[in-house]
């Protein structure tokens, strides 16, 4: 059981990064389906920067930067030019898959040291599970907690929720709708980049094409699953990580590996159906302006 739980702690980290960032963007009213593409660009950039400089810190920062750059492209198209958010996000993902494969060509098969782990506190089974991971695992949790504090305890967080709830009213009150959305989308990009970086420099320290393997899509579903609330998002990230990790343990039970590989996605669909059936839950929390471009009066 212990090795399973330890692997869940690690596997949840990319979900936490990417989904926390997307949660902020969606709370401001912007649906960015480009999560997978931003994660891939973050992953390849972080790998390249780490292998060039030898510093995992610089690598992670470069990954975040790549995510921001991708998010900026999205923001200009979807917020300023009011392109359809769903179509733009999908295009961003497809672009990210292609561009990361191109940029990553020279790095395929190269080795890289994994991000160093902190010491384990070997007191009980619980401490052995929750200590002894790399710093990014804890950073991801801290970011989720920080976002919860920001959204519910600060005025800027209140303004961000207001912009997502009714951009017309927010504008009438003089809140900066467009600037808020830019900031939220760029934050989402940085977090997606960190999630990708975690995969390529800590989780499995290597680069392979399409190595995020659909985690961006699961993170998107996770935001809906969490009904846009950070606390539920953390719980959901561990739940989804447990499902993904279960496949490695399920192989011992002679279940065909293809079925096991499908499991996380089936679980995603099942969870979304269950959540979406409860209209009260979604409607009380969903940002009412999600996906709607904002056109101010002239």
């Amino acid at each position: 059981m212990e090795p399973f739980l330890i692997s869940v702690m690690i596997a949840a980290t990319p979900f936490l990064f990417a989904a926390t960032g997307e949660l902020v963007a969606e709370r401001s009213g912007v649906l960015n389906l480009g999560l997978e593409g931003m994660m891939l660009m973050g992953a390849v950039t972080a790998f390249a920067a780490t292998s060039a400089t030898g510093s995992h810190l610089l690598g992670a920062l470069a990954g975040a930067g790549a995510g921001v750059a991708m998010a900026l492209v999205f923001a200009v198209l979807a917020i300023s030019l009011m392109a359809n958010q769903a179509a733009t996000g999908l295009a961003l993902t497809i672009f990210g898959i292609g561009a990361s494969g191109l940029v990553g060509q020279p790095f395929i098969g190269q080795p890289l040291d994994s991000l160093a782990k902190l010491p384990v506190w070997d007191a009980t089974a619980l401490t052995r599970v929750i200590t002894g991971h790399d710093p990014m695992t804890y950073l991801a949790l801290a970011m989720a907690g920080g976002v919860a504090w920001f959204l519910y305890r600060t005025r800027a967080g209140l303004a961000l929720r207001a912009v997502g709830d009714s951009h017309g009213s927010a504008h009438a009150l003089g809140l900066p709708v467009t600037a808020t959305r830019y900031a939220a989308v760029l934050f989402g990009g940085a977090m997606a980049g960190l999630g990708g970086a975690y995969i390529s420099i800590a989780y499995t320290p290597m680069w392979g094409e399409n190595m995020t393997a659909g985690r961006g899509w699961i993170a998107l579903a996770l935001v809906v699953f969490a009904t846009w609330r950070p606390g539920r998002l953390v719980a959901g990230a561990y739940l989804f990580a447990a499902v993904t990790q279960a496949q490695f343990y399920g192989q011992a039970l002679a279940i065909p590996s293809q079925f096991l590989a499908m499991a996380p996605y089936l679980a995603t669909i099942a969870a979304l159906v269950v959540i979406s059936r409860d209209k009260a839950l979604t409607r009380a929390n969903a940002p009412a302006c999600l996906g709607r471009p904002f056109r101010p009066d002239r």
Partner: peptide, 19 residues
């Protein structure tokens, strides 16, 4: 406003605080 410029998802105090 005629069509109230309020935020349905927020509390009364939060709605007032924003202004």
């Amino acid at each position: 406003h005629q069509h109230f410029s309020v935020f349905e998802a927020l509390t009364v105090a939060e709605n007032v605080a924003l202004a």
